[in-house]
Design a protein around this nucleic acid. Structure first.
Lengths: 150, 150
DNA sequence: GTATCTGCAAACCCTTTGCAATAAG
DNA sequence: CTTATTGCAAAGGGTTTGCAGATAC
């Protein structure tokens, strides 16, 4: 899932800022990059505790801003009242297609978004850095179930 | 800013569900539709208190899900740890271009997004309901300031 | 009259912070 | 050695909820 180079990038960043590479930070990052899944702090914490690691939530919360600054991780916004994240390094930029019923998430990319960005930059004079597109609907299964319910 | 027809839509919805049209609900909705601005609960609450209305935050929080269900209002996600909303009725669907430095927001629409939605529906078999595109960058002014700082 | 709605305050939940002990460099 | 980092527990801040009185219908 990962060749570990995100750890090197992060070490370099820490060194440059005079911060320290600790066992806890390494464990958390390994865990985040161990799967392709999105995560939130609570489930990451529980997963690590179940594996016998003694990290605290505070350490996870304190690490995340650093991971965002190095662009290894970014925030993802869903509707359930707390923050979700995904690791970004090693994956091309993508958007989300979400099922509102079963919460499944498909990732996709579309070249038209780069065009939209470019036009916006021209039209409004912005320096565009990033975009998030979140498309919501019903997946094939839930769509069917939903129709039957009605 | 508004012809008041959102109130009628909301009354119809309440009646259909056996809920009640109260002075507080009317006041809150009027206030939301009085401007084109995005809002959050706290500033809406303060604004209404300053005008001498005795609504509570609880009533605002309890009203919002109803407004979302009638599609008069929708959630907008920003990075500052609490929810923002915008009223949707009477405005065509739009996306946001935000300045990360001064937090200014431009609204825009782009026909390519409807095409993207259509392709996604075909490709993944989804029934697509909605999308949110949030483009982030630096506005012309902040872009200049930012360059000088460096 | 009956059920919903209100304001208030307490509870809730996610996130941040203060602190003393620990560990990286 | 010095300073950053840790875990813990407490504090914070936005949102939800329980309740008794008020109010739509």
């Amino acid at each position: 899932m990962s060749d570990g180079s995100e750890l090197q990038i992060f070490r370099d960043y820490l060194k440059k800022r005079g911060l320290r590479y600790t066992r806890e930070r390494e464990q958390i990052i390994r865990e985040i990059f161990a799967t392709h899944e999105h995560f939130d702090v609570d489930s990451l914490y529980l997963k690590m505790r179940q594996k016998g690691m003694n990290v605290s939530k505070a350490s996870i919360y304190r690490l995340i801003p650093l991971l965002i600054e190095t662009e290894l991780v970014r925030e993802v916004f869903f509707e359930d009242g707390h923050m979700h994240y995904e690791h970004v390094y090693g994956h091309e930029h993508h958007c989300h297609l979400r099922c509102l019923e079963c919460r499944k998430i498909e990732e996709f990319t579309d070249p038209r978004l780069a065009e939209v960005e470019k036009d916006l930059a021209e039209r409004f004079g912005y320096h565009v850095l990033d975009h998030r597109l979140d498309v919501r609907g019903l997946c094939p299964e839930c769509r069917t179930k939903y129709l039957y319910k009605k």
